[in-house]
Simulated assay, not measured.
Amino acid sequence: MELFPAVLIGGPPNSGKSVLTYSLSQSLRKRGVAHYVLRAAPDGEGDWFHEAEPRLARQLRIKGAFDERWVDRIVQDIRRRHLPLLVDVGGMPTPEQERILGVVTHAILLIRDPAARPVWQERVRRYGLHLIADLDSRLEGSSQILEEAPVLRGVITGLERGRMAEGSVFEALAERIAALFRYDPEELRRYHLAMAPDIDWVIDLDDLARMLEIRREGEAPRWAPEDLPRMLDFLPEGKPLALYGRGPAWLYAALAVHALPAPFFQFDVRLGWVEPPRFRWATEGEERTADRSSPLAFTVERAPGGWRLRATFRHPYVEREETEGLLLPPIPEEGLLVLNGKLPLWLFTALARACAGRPALAVFEPRGNQAVVIASRDPAFPVGTVWRIEDPTLPG
């Protein structure tokens, strides 16, 4: 029996699915409802795309194409889920991609072109999904509930990037999803932590935030870069550490470096408990002959004040095992090094641990177009400092 529901948000392209997914996720976070958003499309847009400055978000967005390998991995992720899922599947026009529908449990349909509705309704019936809502998506006008039970039907408006969904239809939908996803938080926590590595320091970020009196938004802590120094002072340095909970990439990277040379583990809602892969530095000869089939491509960019190491995917889906032992390009030992890329947290922690010997190390943060210093021996770059990318002292 499946422990957690997986709710597909489906419909033809340009119906507002990504905006609805993001808005639902934000609503669930404010209610303290644990969940995970899986964007099961190679051009899926993470939360960063809706929160970053628009010009930057367009530059960062990576377009891709479905292939059999991508679908295989997404199906695997959904099957081994560790939390309730919201699954944004994109337009999904081919039978091969429809295999994703075979492993979800529920569906929300969002339709802008009425001619597409019968096709999507037939898909829901064929795969035996529980239909939660069947909605017309319109850019303008008023939201309207036409039928509440057993399926929520109506008109939802204003699903545009840069705006949060709102109105009676959205609130009714958010309440239904919250009820479906509502598990006892302490039960979920115990379930996940019971699988943690057998080490002394298993850190729940929510508990840590309460001990450090971190500012909260609703039920969730709102970590800020200036919290880093006292957080690092609070935790033992150089001890095995396992990290659980929601937090920004720079926070995870800082703690991964803080644990060195001891092991570091993190809970990933796709993978469960995982240790970041280990990278090594390439020699000049190895760099020239690097395997072009490597799943990641690295670019070193010189700029005033230091360097930027940018990581990009060569194909849209990367497994942890594929990245073990990857070669990093040589980078001169001077100035601030900023780690950049649209990466999962376990890759940011892997990069940070590999680059921990730098004079100063920072992680790029798309929200605000800035970088956060996570480790430093250079007084010019104190830990917790936020550097705007436009700042002339930062690689730009």
Rank of each mutant, 00 (worst) to 15 (best):
R58C: 12
E53M: 07
R39T: 03
R58N: 10
P118I: 10
R99H: 13
D67F: 01
R81E: 10
G44Y: 00
V75E: 02
I111C: 08
G46A: 07
R125T: 15
R79N: 14
R39S: 06
L86V: 10
R73Y: 07
P54K: 04
G128Q: 06
P114M: 05
R117S: 12
I132T: 06
P118N: 09
L129A: 11
V119W: 01
H82F: 11
A115G: 04
V71W: 01
L129W: 08
A115S: 11
G46Q: 03
W70M: 06
E96F: 10
E98V: 14
H35M: 04
L83Q: 05
R123F: 09
W70C: 05
P95K: 01
E53Q: 14
L85M: 14
F49K: 00
T94I: 08
R81C: 13
L85I: 09
R61W: 13
G90I: 01
G90A: 02
V87Q: 01
H82T: 09
I74A: 05
R99K: 12
I132A: 06
D113Q: 03
L38C: 08
R126M: 10
L110M: 12
Q76P: 05
I111Y: 01
R126Y: 10
G46D: 04
D113K: 00
I108K: 00
E98L: 15
L129Q: 09
I78P: 01
A116N: 06
V104T: 12
T94S: 12
P54M: 11
K63N: 15
Y36P: 04
V89L: 10
A34S: 07
I132V: 14
R73P: 06
Q59M: 10
P118A: 09
P114D: 13
I78Q: 02
E122V: 09
L110K: 04
V87I: 09
G91C: 01
P54A: 11
W70K: 00
V124D: 13
Y36H: 14
R125M: 13
G44C: 06
E51A: 11
P84A: 10
A107Y: 04
G128F: 09
P95F: 04
V71N: 03
L83E: 07
G44T: 03
E45V: 05
R39D: 02
I111G: 00
G64M: 02
E98C: 13
R126G: 14
V124Q: 08
E68W: 03
R55K: 14
L101F: 15
E68I: 03
F66H: 01
A40I: 02
V71E: 02
G44H: 00
I74N: 00
R125I: 12
E68G: 07
L86A: 04
L109P: 04
A116M: 10
A65S: 15
